[in-house]
Amino acid sequence: MSDTSINKPETGEAQFSDFFALLKPRVMSLVIFTALVGLLVAPGSIHPFIAFCGILFVAIGAGASGALNMWWDADIDRIMRRTQKRPIPAGKVTPNDALAVGLALSGFSVVLLWLATNALAAGLLAFTIFFYAVVYSMWLKRSTPQNIVIGGAAGAFPPMIGWAIVTGDVSLESVLMFAIIFMWTPPHFWALALFMKSDYDDAGVPMLTVTHGRRTTRNHLLVYTLLLAPVAVGLGFTAIAGPIYLTIAIALNAWFIKGAFEIWRRDEAQAEADHYKTEKAFFKFSLLYLFLHFGALLVKPALAPFGMGGW
């Protein structure tokens, strides 16, 4: 947790943009997108205004998680190059203010999602915030190299919440959407860790690269990529997908496996010689991989009004 040396901003009064940065808007955008997909592919109907409110409250809940994470991780954020410019280590927002924002938005988002939609959706959002802020940030992140593996569940709940907003329940389809993000998270972050190892080492975060080395990380990255592929392709055989999704999923996973295999067979001398070019390319593609999978799920409902819902 942050120490008293960063309790006072160094750059004057905090601006709105500083508080907005606390919410991790890049992460929030992914949460919004996957939750929206879960909502749009769910069976049944929902009033557009209720749908808008539901996604808005999910986004606010995601932002609350980000603020609580930044409050707790302020001390290590000052050490890691990737996070030194965040509002708290940069001296723009105090840890106490970040905590207040995180707690207030957590309660606000959960209660209003419950009032606007249903108890299950609100309960899933509350559990997601708790899991990310407490289970992952406060416990797993600094205690085990499996931090990303288990902690990835926090980022995997949004499509399940979107589904629950419409249906009020959980189904195989929503579980598979959850599983795709859950299985995708480790190779995504391990690719980052391979070329950012010194950051985690300096901060004392037991990322797999720090505790077991890059060779073991490469092995794990390949295994999880191989486990991810049947989950992602398997979703193509459910009611919410179709031939177009299935074709895209097969192509994306073939490419993803190819990239993981290339990372696996490299040694550190090769990686350092080209400045981890392959690992960086895999990390960037992993973002596109997830976006295209969930984007492909929207094809079927988009074509349904034209009598082409089978696609």
Rank of each mutant, 00 (worst) to 15 (best):
D201I: 04
T11A: 13
P95M: 07
A203Y: 06
F283P: 05
L176S: 13
A302R: 00
G44P: 09
N69C: 10
K92E: 13
W311F: 15
T117H: 06
I76T: 12
D201N: 12
Y224S: 00
L120S: 08
I32A: 14
F237R: 11
Y224R: 00
G107Q: 07
I180M: 07
A179G: 14
M1G: 15
G259N: 14
A203H: 03
R265H: 07
D267W: 02
G162S: 01
G213T: 02
K85Y: 09
V58S: 01
A59T: 06
L124S: 07
W264L: 01
A59N: 04
L113P: 08
L115N: 10
F130N: 00
W255A: 05
P95F: 03
G66R: 02
L140P: 09
K197N: 15
T144N: 05
F306K: 03
W163E: 02
A296R: 09
H47C: 05
T217W: 06
A251N: 13
E10L: 13
F19D: 13
K24G: 04
S65G: 15
N7I: 06
F131Y: 15
V101S: 12
G54C: 06
F256L: 04
E272H: 06
F306R: 01
V135S: 07
T83N: 10
D73F: 04
T216Y: 12
A229S: 13
F157T: 13
G155K: 07
W184R: 05
F283A: 10
W72P: 12
G295L: 01
E262S: 09
R215G: 11
I263P: 01
K258D: 09
V134D: 04
A251G: 13
L115S: 03
D169S: 15
K24C: 10
M160P: 03
D75V: 05
I181A: 01
F189C: 04
